[in-house]
Amino acid sequence: MEKAGGPQIVIDGTRSYTFHTVGEVPNWMKMTAEGLEVGDKVRIGMCVPKGATWALRSMYPLKLKTVADFIKVDSLAQLDKDEPGKNGKKYYFDNATSMVYYKFYGATNRSENDNQVCGGGKCPMIELTLAGNLSANNGDCRSTLYSAEQMALVPPELPVSTETFMANAGPEPPADFGHGSSRPFTSRSPVNGRNGQWSEWSSCSVTCGNGYQYKRRECNNPMPQHGGGPCGTPHYKERNCKLDACT
Score class of each variant (00 low, 15 high):
Glu157Asn: 13
Gly180Thr: 07
Asp40Cys: 07
Gly5Trp: 13
Glu149Gln: 15
Met99Asn: 03
Thr164Ile: 09
Arg217Trp: 00
Gly139Cys: 02
Gln213Pro: 05
Val73Tyr: 00
Gly51Arg: 04
Ala152Tyr: 08
Ser203Pro: 08
Phe165Tyr: 11
Pro171Cys: 05
Cys47Leu: 08
Val191Phe: 11
Tyr214Gly: 03
Thr14Arg: 10
Thr18Gln: 09
Asp94Phe: 00
Arg142Ser: 15
Ile126Tyr: 01
Ser143Leu: 09
Ala167Phe: 01
Phe104Met: 00
Met99His: 01
Gly232Asn: 15
Leu76Arg: 05
Tyr146Ala: 07
Pro224Thr: 09
Lys30Asp: 05
Pro224Gly: 11
Cys241Tyr: 02
Gly121Ile: 01
Gly51Phe: 01
Asp140Ile: 07
Met151Val: 09
Arg183Lys: 11
Ser135Arg: 14
Gly106Asp: 00
Met31Lys: 14
Ala77Pro: 01
Ser98Pro: 04
Gly45Pro: 02
Ala175Ser: 10
Ser161Glu: 02
Asn138Val: 09
Glu127Met: 14
His20Val: 13
Thr162Cys: 08
Lys237Gly: 05
Gly120Cys: 06
Asn109Pro: 06
Thr162Ser: 10
Lys122Met: 10
Arg15Ser: 13
Cys246His: 03
Cys208Phe: 05
Ala152Leu: 08
Phe177Met: 14
Cys47Glu: 03
Gly23Thr: 10
Val73Leu: 02
His235Val: 04
Asn95Pro: 15
Gln213Arg: 15
Asp244Gln: 14
Pro84Asp: 04
Phe104Trp: 02
Glu37Phe: 04
Ser98Leu: 08
Ala136Gly: 14
His226Tyr: 15
Gly227Phe: 10
Ala169Trp: 05
Cys241Asp: 02
Phe185His: 13
His226Trp: 14
Val42Glu: 03
Ser58Ala: 10
Asp74Ala: 11
Ala107Asp: 01
Asp69Cys: 09
Gly139Lys: 03
Pro155Gln: 07
Asn27Asp: 15
Leu79His: 02
Glu127Arg: 08
Asn192Gly: 07
Tyr212Thr: 12
Trp198Gly: 11
Cys208His: 12
Trp201Arg: 08
Pro173Val: 00
Lys81Val: 12
Asp69Gln: 09
Tyr214Pro: 07
Thr129Trp: 09
Ala68Val: 09
Glu83Asp: 08
Phe165Asn: 09
Cys118His: 00
Asp80Gly: 08
Ala175Gln: 15
Gly228Arg: 10
Leu243His: 05
Ala131Gln: 12
Arg15Asn: 14
Ser75Leu: 08
Asp69Tyr: 13
Lys237Phe: 05
Asn95Ala: 13
Lys242Gln: 13
Thr144Tyr: 04
Asp140Pro: 06
Lys89Cys: 05
Leu36Glu: 00
Lys30Phe: 02
Val206Gly: 01
Gly13Tyr: 07
